[in-house]
């Protein structure tokens, strides 16, 4: 299991007009691991996730997922091939309840046709109930039963992040991309979130790529770490290795290049 490669990014470059967000980056993610992406603000971490799930199309390089290489793919194709994601600035469906937000993660797994939905009996109804059960399990797992029916727009930030994780979990992804899942959280919330991520990885075997600034969290969670700075990869290895790496220390201390 450990040896299988799930995703590999080869020589990817991405620029916006004159701004080079990512320069010639290569790295891979193994099946079942927790892979952290770290680096100062503006290093290109979010852009890299956007490339992986098809929001941005890199000018150079290629990505292979489950051994299939592709140059362009649409976000919904990424979704249907098992890639889910959360956003740095929570991107929930604000007008919908917690329950509906997480149910929305099941969209791709629902099949019943328009006719059955119109009369809401038979397949449409059974399907809705069946998916509701899965969603309720996720709600229990994330300990958010008390906000089940509340519109998410009014929830505190920490809970919104949790609902967003739940929505991604509902997709039962093979690869889960988490963009700063603990940003702006207090210690207790971070501990809860770390616990969810570890459980998700251990119990469901979900492969996780995670952007995080808190080195303590990265040390605890990650199997391997990629370090980016100014769009370039400056280090790649286990948390202990990268922490000892001189280039990484320089980047974080702001030494002039």
């Amino acid at each position: 299991m450990e040896s299988a490669e799930l995703l590999s990014v080869s020589n990817v470059s991405l620029s916006f007009g004159g701004v080079k967000a990512i320069s010639d980056i290569s790295f891979n993610i193994m099946k079942g691991e927790v892979r952290a992406l770290i680096g100062p603000n503006g290093a290109g971490k979010t852009s890299l996730l956007n490339v992986i799930n098809g929001f941005y199309h890199p000018q150079e390089g290629q990505i292979s997922y489950r051994g299939k290489t592709r140059k362009r793919m649409k976000p919904y194709q990424a979704a249907s091939s098992g890639i889910a994601r959360t956003f740095q600035n929570v991107a929930l469906f604000k007008g919908m309840s917690t329950l509906d937000n997480i149910m929305s993660g099941r969209s791709l797994k629902m099949r019943s046709g328009l006719f059955w939905q119109m009369i809401n009996v038979g397949p449409a109804r059974n399907e809705e109930i069946q998916h509701r059960k899965v969603v309720e399990n996720i709600i229990d797992f994330l300990e958010i039963a008390h906000i089940r029916k509340q519109p998410v727009g009014k929830l505190p930030y920490g809970l919104q992040k949790r609902v967003e994780l739940g929505r991604a979990m509902a997709m039962e992804p093979e690869l889960l991309l988490l963009d700063e899942p603990m940003a702006g959280m207090n210690l207790e919330e971070k501990e809860d979130m770390s616990r969810f991520i570890i459980d998700l990885n251990n119990e469901f075997g979900t492969t996780i790529a995670l952007i995080e600034h808190d080195m303590g969290v990265v040390m605890d969670l990650a199997d391997r770490v990629v370090v980016l700075d100014y769009g370039r990869k400056i280090a790649d290895g286990t948390p202990t290795e990268v922490q000892a790496n001189q280039a990484v220390i320089d980047a974080y201390l702001g030494v002039a290049h």
């Binding site: 929001f55 991107a91 929930l92 969209s107 019943s112 939905q117 449409a124 809705e128 929505r167």
Partner: peptide, 23 residues
């Protein structure tokens, strides 16, 4: 209140996230 209605509200509230859920 089914899948199709939800997909409309998903697009309304946050179209990029909707696309990421496979809409």
């Amino acid at each position: 209140r089914g899948r199709i209605g939800r997909s409309w509200m998903m697009i309304r509230d946050m179209d990029i996230a909707a696309e990421l859920m496979g809409i």
